[in-house]
C-alpha cells in the first residue's frame, strides 16, 4: 500500500477533538418574549473526535441530517464549533489569538463541493476561477499566474485553452474538474471533498474518483471525504467514520469496516445498499 508510510513523528494533518456544534431553533416571535425559558438548541454534532494522517483519506458517511457537512464546515473554518478543537498540522484553527495562524492555514485547506453548477461563478472565465486563490494568496501574478492556471487545468485533465471558456461550456464532470483545479490552485495539503461525485453520472464519477486518487498519490494530499455512498467510500478511503444524528457511532479501517461493521446502524446502512448481482448466477 502506497499510503501506509509511518506517521508517528509527524502531527496528523487534521485532528478533531470533542467537536460539537449547536444550532438555535427558531421560536415564534411572541414566545421568544416569555422570560425564563432557555433558548432551544439543536445539537447537530456531538463530541466527535478523529484524526487523519498525512496522505490518507478519511471518509465520513451518514444519511441526510447526520452532521457530515457541519463537520466539513468546521474543519475548514467556515463554522465555529460550540465545543472542541480542530487542529490542522498541530495548529488550533479556532484558538482565540489564532487570527494569523487561521489566515496561514486557509491556504493549506481547500474544499470541493457537491454541485459544480452552484460552486463556480457562471460569469467568470475559468482562468479567473482557478486564478483567484493564486491571486488571493499572492502566489503569482501576470504571466506566471496564467502559466500556473494552465498547469492546474492540465493536471485535472483539461487543456490550457479551456482557461478562456465559461463554466456553462463544460459538462458536469468537466465542471467538477475545474472545481478541483481551483482547490489545487493554492497548493493545499488538505482537501475536504463534500459529496464530490453525487451530482455526476456513474461513468463520469469513476473518472473524477480516479483523478482524486491520482492527485493524492502524486501530490501527497490528505482528504476528508464526505459521502452517503458506501461503495464510493469503500473505494476511496483508508478509514471510515459513521455518523448517526451527529454522533460518531463507529470508526474503523476500511478493510475491517467492510469485512463486518460493528454498530447496528452501520450494518443497516450497509444492508440497505442495493446489490448488483454481477456474475453470481452463473
Amino acid at each position: 500500500m502506497k499510503h501506509s508510510t509511518p506517521t508517528t513523528t509527524v502531527a496528523p494533518v487534521l485532528s478533531v477533538e470533542g467537536l460539537s456544534r449547536d444550532f438555535n431553533i427558531p421560536v415564534p416571535f411572541l414566545r421568544r418574549l416569555v422570560p425564563g425559558r432557555p433558548r432551544p438548541v439543536f445539537r447537530a454534532v456531538t463530541d466527535v473526535s478523529f484524526e487523519i494522517p498525512r496522505g490518507q483519506t478519511y471518509a465520513l458517511v451518514g444519511e441526510s441530517g447526520s452532521g457530515k457537512s457541519t463537520i466539513a464546515r468546521m474543519v475548514v473554518g467556515l463554522t465555529r464549533p460550540t465545543a472542541g478543537v480542530v487542529r490542522i498540522a498541530g495548529h488550533d484553527l479556532f484558538a482565540p489569538d489564532a487570527r494569523d495562524t487561521r489566515q496561514a492555514m486557509r491556504r493549506r485547506i481547500q474544499m470541493v463541493f457537491q454541485d459544480p453548477q452552484a460552486s463556480l461563478n457562471p460569469r467568470w472565465r475559468v482562468e479567473a476561477i482557478v486564478g483567484e486563490p493564486i491571486r488571493a494568496f499572492g502566489l503569482a501574478s501576470g504571466r506566471a499566474l496564467a502559466a500556473r492556471v494552465a498547469g492546474h487545468l492540465e493536471t485535472v485533465g483539461l487543456s490550457a485553452a479551456d482557461a478562456r471558456k465559461y463554466p456553462h461550456e463544460f459538462s458536469g464532470g468537466q465542471r467538477q474538474r475545474i472545481a478541483i483545479a481551483r482547490a489545487l490552485a493554492s497548493e493545499p495539503e488538505f482537501i475536504v471533498c463534500d459529496e464530490p461525485t453525487s451530482a455526476l453520472d456513474v461513468s463520469v464519477q469513476a473518472q473524477v474518483l480516479n483523478l482524486l486518487r491520482t492527485l493524492q498519490s502524486d501530490l501527497g494530499l490528505t482528504y476528508l471525504f464526505i459521502s452517503h455512498d458506501l461503495a464510493v467510500v469503500r473505494h476511496m478511503a483508508q478509514r471510515v467514520g459513521v455518523l448517526q444524528r451527529g454522533i460518531l457511532v463507529e470508526e474503523a479501517d476500511t478493510k475491517t469496516f467492510f469485512a463486518g461493521p460493528k454498530a447496528e446502524y452501520s450494518q443497516m446502512l450497509l444492508s440497505a445498499v442495493p446489490k448488483i448481482r454481477k456474475g453470481t448466477d452463473e
Binding site: M1, T57, V202, S203, Q205, A206, Q207, L209, N210, R213, D229, L230, A231, V232, R234, H235, M236, A237, Q238, T254, K255, F257, F258, L270, V273, K275, I276, K278
Partner: peptide, 22 residues
Amino acid sequence: LMDAIPSLDPARGEPGVATLRQ
C-alpha cells in the same frame, strides 16, 4: 458502465486500493 460502478463486492479489489475502470 457496470465496471465504472464502485462496488461493495470483495471480488472487486481491496478497499481503498483498487482503481475504478472508467
